[in-house]
C-alpha cells in the first residue's frame, strides 16, 4: 500500500510539472533593490492580468550569478543589482549562453551613516573621518601604521570621545563597493595615506587595495544580513555607527539619527543633485531571450520604469528611491529591448 502511494505521488508530481510551464516572472538579487521590486511586483499583480512576479533577495553578486547560469525556464529572468554588472560576470553569462542582456537603471540610492537617536552626537562626518576610524592602515604622524585609533576624538576633536564601533555591509553586498569607493578611497586620498603608501614604494594599484582594507580588530563589523540586522546592532550599542540605505533610514527616523557627509545632509534632493557624495545607481538586468517566452516579462520591465512608478511622484520615490532624471531614456531602452553593447 505504502509503495503504491509513493509511486502514485511521484507520478502525479511528474505529470503535473511536465504539463506546467512557468507563467510568472522570476527575479532575484540585491537586497537593496528588493523593497522597490516588491512594490512594483505587488502593483504589477494588482494592475495587470499577469500573476505577481516572485522576487528573491540574496545580494547583487548572488543574483547575477544565478542570472548567468543559463537560458531556460528553470533560470531567473531578471537580476536586481545595486551596482553595474562586471566584465567578469558578462563573460560568465556569455559562456552559459546568456548573451543578450538588457540593462535597466531604475534610479539612485543614497547611503547614509546613522547612529542611535540618543547616542553620542555623531552628526557630521567626512570621508577622512571614516577612513581614519575604519581603515586597516592609516597615516599617523607622517607614517603609515596599523590603525591605532580607539575613539573618534583621537583623530578629530570635533567628534565625540566615544569608542569606535562601526557596522558596515559585508562583501557580498553591492553597498560595500560604494562604501569603499566613495568613502574609504576618498578618505585615504584626503588624509594623504595613499600618497604616503605610494611614496613608501607601493604601486598605485596596491596602494588602492590597501586603502580599501578595513581594520580587522573587531572595531568594524561586517554585516552580511539586511539593514534590520544593522539596526539591531545599533540598538544594542549606543556608540555604534551603521551604514544604511536612505529609504531604510527614512523608515526608521524615530530610532536613528543621520550624519551629514562633508557637510551635506542626505535627502532625495541632495542625492538627485549630486551634492551628497555617497550614492549609487540601482539596476536590474533582463534576459532578452526570455522575452516572449515568459509571459509578462517585458510588461514587468516596462511597468517598473513607467513614470507612474519610478517617476518623481511614484510609489518608489515615496519609499525613498531617488528617481532617475533620465528615466525617459531608460523607458525607451526597455521598449526597444536594447541590449548591452548595442546602444552604446
Amino acid at each position: 500500500m505504502t509503495v503504491k502511494l509513493t509511486v502514485s505521488a511521484l507520478a502525479i508530481a511528474a505529470a503535473a510539472t511536465s504539463a506546467y510551464a512557468r507563467d510568472n516572472v522570476q527575479v532575484a538579487g540585491s537586497s537593496t533593490v528588493l523593497p522597490y521590486a516588491s512594490i512594483v511586483a505587488e502593483a504589477f499583480g494588482e494592475n495587470t492580468d499577469f500573476p505577481t512576479p516572485v522576487v528573491e533577495s540574496g545580494g547583487s553578486s548572488a543574483g547575477l550569478k544565478r542570472f548567468c547560469e543559463g537560458v531556460g525556464e528553470n533560470t531567473i529572468d531578471v537580476a536586481n543589482a545595486s551596482r553595474a554588472i562586471r566584465e567578469k560576470e558578462i563573460k560568465a553569462c556569455a559562456e552559459n549562453g546568456v548573451t543578450d542582456i538588457i540593462e535597466v537603471r531604475i534610479g539612485y540610492d543614497g547611503i547614509v551613516f546613522a547612529s542611535q537617536q540618543s547616542g553620542p552626537a555623531f552628526t557630521a562626518f567626512t570621508p577622512s573621518d571614516i577612513f581614519n576610524a575604519l581603515g586597516a592602515k592609516v597615516l599617523k604622524d607622517g607614517e603609515v601604521v596599523d590603525n591605532p585609533h580607539n575613539t573618534w576624538a583621537e583623530f578629530n576633536g570635533d567628534l565625540p570621545d566615544a569608542e569606535i564601533a562601526a557596522f558596515i555591509p559585508g562583501t557580498k553586498h553591492g553597498t560595500r563597493e560604494v562604501f569603499e569607493e566613495k568613502v574609504l578611497l576618498i578618505g585615504c586620498e584626503e588624509t594623504g595615506a595613499m600618497q604616503a603608501m605610494i611614496d613608501g614604494g607601493m604601486s598605485e594599484d596596491d596602494a588602492e587595495d590597501a586603502c580599501l582594507a578595513v581594520r580587522t580588530d573587531g572595531k568594524s563589523v561586517d554585516i552580511d544580513g539586511d539593514y534590520t540586522e544593522t539596526l539591531a546592532r545599533i540598538d544594542a550599542n549606543p556608540n555604534g555607527i551603521g551604514v544604511f540605505g536612505l529609504a531604510f533610514y527614512e523608515n526608521n527616523q524615530d530610532k536613528l539619527k543621520v550624519a551629514t557627509m562633508s557637510g551635506v545632509a542626505p535627502s532625495t534632493e541632495t542625492i538627485a543633485s549630486g551634492e551628497y557624495p555617497v550614492s549609487r545607481p540601482l539596476y536590474f538586468y533582463v534576459k532578452k531571450a526570455h522575452i516572449g517566452v515568459i509571459p509578462g516579462l517585458k510588461e514587468y520591465a516596462q511597468f517598473f520604469v513607467a513614470d507612474e512608478l519610478a517617476g518623481p511622484n511614484g510609489p518608489l520615490a515615496n519609499y525613498g528611491l531617488v528617481s532617475d532624471p533620465e528615466l525617459a531614456k531608460v523607458q525607451q531602452t526597455v521598449a526597444d529591448e536594447v541590449t548591452m553593447g548595442e546602444g552604446m
Binding site: 510568472n24 532575484a28 528588493l34 505587488e42 522576487v55 528573491e56 533577495s57
Partner: peptide
C-alpha cells in the same frame, strides 16, 4: 528554502 526560491517576495495569492 532559501536556495530554491521560496524566500523573498512571493505574493501570487
Amino acid at each position: 528554502l532559501l536556495l530554491i526560491g521560496m524566500v523573498g517576495f512571493v505574493a501570487r495569492g
